[in-house]
Design a protein around this nucleic acid. Structure first.
Lengths: 353, 353
DNA sequence: TTGTACGCGTTATCAG
DNA sequence: CTGATAACGCGTACAA
């Protein structure tokens, strides 16, 4: 480790300036300072201005620990995840932060790393810190056990994860609607033989999407071929291998709906190797709209966007409502939307049927 | 939005149980309760146990707002970024959280979204909340302006970013050493004509790495060909295009060091299209070790790992030291390490020179 | 118009 | 061994 660090241990405990300091300096009482700074009560405007000037000069910042102790709440919320943050966490956090920021609330990061004991420890700490609420999240949307906040009555909300027991509020992406969007898009573009290279079948999202795919096919009057549903890991290599199998065993296939963008990328690579043109011979559609993957595949990938940022925003604002006393339970499915690039043909290339 | 939510506004302000409640229930004074629970002073063990039992039964959790007000610190630190969190932020946050967690400190998320006003607002809030310290981070390692915490004396540390002015502590990955690792690896594997497809030249990391590349080439007694240094965006397509140019204009090239894994991926794709085998004809080495990209390229990518998690851990523990009064300044360059996969030949395929 | 005093929930000190 | 009391920094009735 190349370091050029100079260390100098100093015991400086900089006392922060309090309302007393301001009062003394301005020659008034602390009560007057408080009123002056908070715009309360009736003060001679000369006094008020003088106090404000002094406060500014001294760099006075009210100590929120004291304020909050008085108010009985902390203006913080905990963001708790059991199994680490994943790639959806960043937009989710942004959305949550933005929504909560409007209420002057800050977010605590709590990554329990799939360790029940750590999770318990975090929850205890959050409760001791008297957070105004807790948002529980995850890398998967699958159900997890509810967290226990005892008799505290602290609002808890589940975002991008869910609990089965009890009456909690869970906010999730709408996998069914997203898959529907994808298949309808393909059908509208004249595709009739659609394959579905899925993620692992034990994921709820996989199941929901599969269900939707079957429904849309049925509604469109298309036959459902079982061998066109392939389930495997969320990996590029799975897309690669599954595509080879799918195309060689069923050469009729003219479109493939992939479980995520990585899989789609593997699919596109294999199609190129097989000499099939995308989208002319075969259309490919992904899931997640992971920009970095989807935009740089060749051709760029049309895909379903989970709209995680807004999901986070929604979570944040719902939690605010709960903090204000509303008691909500149930499941909210936030809609996905389609991002059209080139792998299914351009937007206006919809054939006249 | 498909939702099945039941809303029921209730104004329940659950008073949390205080030390007074425990004292009353146990028939002792609050002082005694405090001692019993904190293992202080001398108490009849019967009393102590009874109090602990009562506290547990009532679900008593000490109010940290009160504790911390007394202690004069909050046991929190702010994690501030001006320009949003990027893909390195997650491991960085984990490292920071882990290091700080050992000291019972929680982390506040503050994403100022490249808005100076938001940044100022966050800093004010953090100071008001009396955070024990602030870690400033970024998506780039390039210098940024120092943040102003006034006369507070609150420790500030820059992680994965740096400031030029003043005496701050900055922790950065060691780009030079990382690039050196890469080139030395190539040279050890018998490569003699090494191209360098870089990121944008105005990035400090690009410059540092280029410098190191030239040095190692020199040390190895290899000529430096200017046309083998190509600078462009951090995109896969850049790797793709640059490789075509590089290889057609200089067919001798037998190794390419890429500015990141995405570029390397574009490089590998183009090499495949040009009929050059990796690693037999040409070795490719990436940067960042972005698992999802590097591991699933074909062949899997040998790459330089920035070790961001440990960089975060280091940042966290240094901040702890600063909170304890140490006064450190300077720049720490945390070393990178090599992750060997297949794109440069296997580990034991080092030719006998 | 301004000052005083109490309370928020703890911990620590000092009597008893 | 245990209880009262003074802080911590602030807001706010209420008194002056």
């Amino acid at each position: 480790m190349s370091s050029e660090v100079s260390n100098e241990s100093v015991s400086r405990q900089m006392q922060s300036v309090t309302i007393h300091d301001v009062a003394r300096e301005a020659g008034v009482s602390i009560g007057t300072v408080s009123k002056a700074l908070n715009g309360q009560g009736k003060l001679k405007s000369e006094t008020r201005e003088r106090i404000q000037e002094v406060a500014a000069r001294l760099g006075f910042r009210p100590n929120m620990m004291a304020q909050n102790l008085l108010r009985g709440r902390s203006y913080t919320v905990g963001l708790l995840t059991t199994d680490s943050y994943g790639r959806f966490s960043i937009p989710l956090m942004k959305g949550i932060e933005d929504a909560l920021g409007t209420a002057q609330i800050l977010v605590f990061l709590c990554d329990a790393r799939d360790d029940a004991q750590r999770e318990r420890q975090y929850i205890e700490t959050l409760l001791s810190k008297r957070v105004d609420g807790i948002i529980v999240t995850s890398r998967r949307t699958d159900p997890r056990p509810a967290i226990d906040v005892g008799q505290t009555g602290i609002p808890v909300l589940y975002a991008y994860t869910q609990v089965k027991e009890g009456n909690a509020l869970c906010i999730l992406p709408d996998d069914e609607q997203g898959a529907r969007l994808a298949i309808e898009h393909l059908v509208e573009h004249g595709r009739r033989h659609i394959g579905h290279i899925m993620g692992p079948s034990h994921f709820e999202s996989t199941q929901l999407r599969q269900k939707a795919v079957r429904q849309v096919l049925k509604e469109a009057g298309l036959a459902t071929h079982e061998q066109r549903f392939l389930s495997g890991p969320w990996q590029e290599s799975w897309g690669y291998n599954a595509t080879q199998f799918l195309i060689t065993s069923d050469p009729q296939v003219d479109a493939i709906f992939c479980g995520n963008d990585q899989i789609a990328r593997g699919t596109i690579d294999m199609l190129r190797e097989l000499g099939r043109k995308v989208p002319d011979d075969i259309a490919v559609i992904g899931f997640d709209n992971w920009e970095i993957i989807a935009a740089s595949s060749r051709p760029p990938l049309t895909t379903v966007d989970l709209d995680i940022y807004h999901l986070g925003q929604l979570a944040g604002s719902r939690l605010l409502a709960m903090i204000d006393g509303s008691r909500e339970t149930g499941v909210i499915r936030h809609p996905c939307h389609l991002v059209i690039r080139a792998s299914c043909g351009s937007h206006d290339s919809v054939p006249i049927l």
